[in-house]
Amino acid sequence: MTTTLDVFRAEVAQWMHEHLRGEFEPLRGAGGVGDEHYDPALGKRWEQELARGGWVGIGWPEAHGGRGLPLLHQVVFHEEYVRVGGPGRIGHIGETLLAPTLIEFGSAEQQQRFLPGIRNGTQYWAQGYSEPNAGSDLANVQTRARRVGDEWAIDGQKVWTSWAKESDWIFVLARCEPGSQRHQGLVLLLVPLAQPGVTIRPIRQMTGVPEFNEVFFDDARTEASLHLGAPGAGWRVAMALLGFERGVSTLGQQAQFEREMQILLAVARANGAAGDALLRERLSHSALTLRAIRFNALRVLAGTEGAREALIAKYAWSNWRRDFGVLAADVLGAAADRIDDDPAAQTLRRIWLASRADTIYAGANEIQLNLIAERALGMPR
Rank of each mutant, 00 (worst) to 15 (best):
V33Q: 06
H19C: 06
E49V: 02
Q111R: 15
W60H: 09
G85R: 10
A30N: 15
A13S: 14
R83C: 00
R28A: 11
E80M: 10
G43D: 05
P26E: 03
G43P: 04
P40Y: 00
G85I: 00
Y81N: 04
G68I: 07
W46P: 13
G106F: 09
Q110A: 09
G31M: 11
A13N: 07
P132K: 03
A63W: 04
I90H: 03
G29W: 01
A10Y: 04
E104Q: 15
V141T: 14
R89S: 10
R119W: 03
P26C: 03
G31K: 13
G29H: 01
P87W: 07
L98E: 05
W46M: 04
G59W: 12
E79A: 12
R52V: 00
P100M: 07
F105I: 00
A30W: 01
S107C: 13
G34E: 06
G94L: 11
E49D: 12
G86D: 08
E95T: 09
G31I: 05
Q14M: 12
G68S: 10
L71P: 07
L69F: 01
N120Y: 06
E131F: 02
Y81C: 02
I93H: 13
I118C: 03
E25I: 02
E131P: 11
L50N: 03
R119S: 08
E104K: 15
G32I: 00
H78F: 14
A99W: 09
P100T: 08
E25Q: 15
E131Y: 06
G128D: 07
L42T: 04
R119V: 01
R9C: 09
Q110T: 12
G106T: 07
N140E: 10
L97N: 11
G86Y: 09
E47Q: 15
E49W: 06
P40D: 04
T122P: 13
A134I: 00
G117S: 12
P100E: 08
W15Y: 14
T101F: 10
G121Y: 02
V82A: 13
G135F: 08
W46F: 09
A10L: 05
W60F: 08
D39K: 10
R52C: 01
P40M: 02
L115W: 08
G135I: 06
L27G: 04
F77N: 01
W125A: 10
W55Q: 11
V75C: 13
G106A: 13
V7W: 00
S107R: 10
R89M: 13
G54K: 05
G91K: 02
F77H: 08
A134Q: 08
Y124H: 12
R83A: 14
L97S: 13
G57A: 12
R52Y: 02
E25A: 15
R45F: 03
R45T: 07
W46N: 10
E109V: 14
G117R: 15
P40C: 11
A63L: 07
A139H: 13
K44V: 04
P100A: 00
A51H: 04
H92C: 01
G53H: 04
R28K: 15
D137E: 14
Q110H: 11
E79P: 12
A139D: 15
P116E: 12
R67P: 02
N133M: 11
S130T: 07
Q110W: 04
W55K: 11
F105E: 05
I118Q: 05
Q127A: 09
H19N: 15
V33H: 05
Q112F: 01
P100K: 03
R119P: 06
E18C: 06
N120A: 14
G59D: 11
Q48D: 02
F105V: 04
Y38K: 01
V84I: 14
L42C: 10
